[in-house]
């Protein structure tokens, strides 16, 4: 027989300082009577300062500004963004996020929760997440979409700052649409993730990214498959193929439901962004 564990007796406020920072930032976008998107909730917290950006018509715009160095090991950070029915919200970031080691060796947690209502559109376009040497970050991105919601989501990961090995980075992206799971993917790189640095997974690349576009228009006809960047690897008989430089490459392809996903790998963040921008143009986004 197994004894039940005692309930957690340390609420967040009682946690010692070494346990790290807890912060949850929140944004809610809502349309008012004339169809303009307002931001009734724009609450920064901890390392997340939220700036409203002047919008010339179109969607409401928010920029996430890093107010301190985070996430550090032991931190528990979250951002919750809701685009209510009929609204349009565009979120960017001022700079890359760098996952850093903490004092205790405990992992950091960073949870992004995005909700998009009927007829609403959310563009979630942060800057890259950089996994610094010695860091350990567990990230989740969970998206709930109504059946007629539109989403454009970019996710970029850079393994290590310039010239250093990567930290441990585990990230799960789960997208549900009208109650069904459209996409569920976990990436695990760095110490403790067996097989990550192999030719089946990254092949020496250090920047990985995805651009996901979901919308009811994809139900009419799936996006065509498109290769991005270097399309090599066709057999080159009689040509040695061992020591070619790393070429950024990717693919834009339809999901099993109404959406398309670009996946790309590159030696660095700059070449990765180029491929994802190419994919965005391919989707007219």
């Amino acid at each position: 027989m197994t004894l039940a564990l005692p309930p957690q007796t340390t609420p967040a406020t009682a946690a010692p300082p070494s346990a790290g920072l807890r912060a949850t930032a929140r944004v809610v976008a809502r349309t008012d009577a004339d169809g303009t998107t307002r931001l009734p909730v724009l609450d920064g917290d901890g390392p997340f300062a939220l700036r409203r950006v002047r919008a010339h018509g179109g969607p409401a715009r928010v920029c996430v500004v890093g107010a301190m160095s985070a996430p550090l090991g032991g931190d528990r950070l979250a951002i919750e963004v809701t685009a209510e029915a009929g609204s349009a919200l565009h979120v960017t970031a001022a700079a890359a996020t760098v996952a850093l080691p903490g004092r205790t060796g405990a992992p950091a947690h960073y949870d992004v929760r995005l909700t998009v209502g009927e007829g609403a559109r959310l563009d979630w376009l942060p800057e890259p997440l950089i996994s610094a040497a010695g860091s350990d970050l567990r990230m989740t991105t969970t998206v709930e979409l109504a059946a007629t919601a539109r989403l454009v989501l970019r996710e970029e990961q850079v393994l290590g700052r310039s010239g250093e090995p990567t930290g441990a980075l585990r990230s799960r992206l789960t997208v549900r649409r009208a109650g069904r799971t459209l996409l569920d993917q976990e990436t695990a790189y760095g110490p403790g993730a067996p097989g990550w640095d192999t030719s089946a997974v990254l092949g020496g690349h250090r920047a990985i990214g995805q651009l996901l576009v979901v919308g009811p228009e994809f139900a009419d006809g799936p996006a065509p498959v498109r290769l991005l960047g270097a399309t090599g690897d066709q057999p080159h008989r009689g040509r040695p193929s061992g020591d070619r430089p790393l070429d950024a490459r990717g693919v834009l392809a339809p999901l099993a439901g109404p959406g398309a996903l670009a996946t790309a790998v590159a030696p660095d963040a700059l070449r990765l962004r180029r491929l994802l921008d190419e994919a965005a143009r391919g989707l007219g986004g």
Binding site: E186, T187, A188, A200, V201, G203, H205, V251, T263, V265
Partner: peptide, 11 residues
Amino acid sequence: PAASAPLLDIT
């Protein structure tokens, strides 16, 4: 689990 391998997908 949902472990992904970007290069397997791309290639």
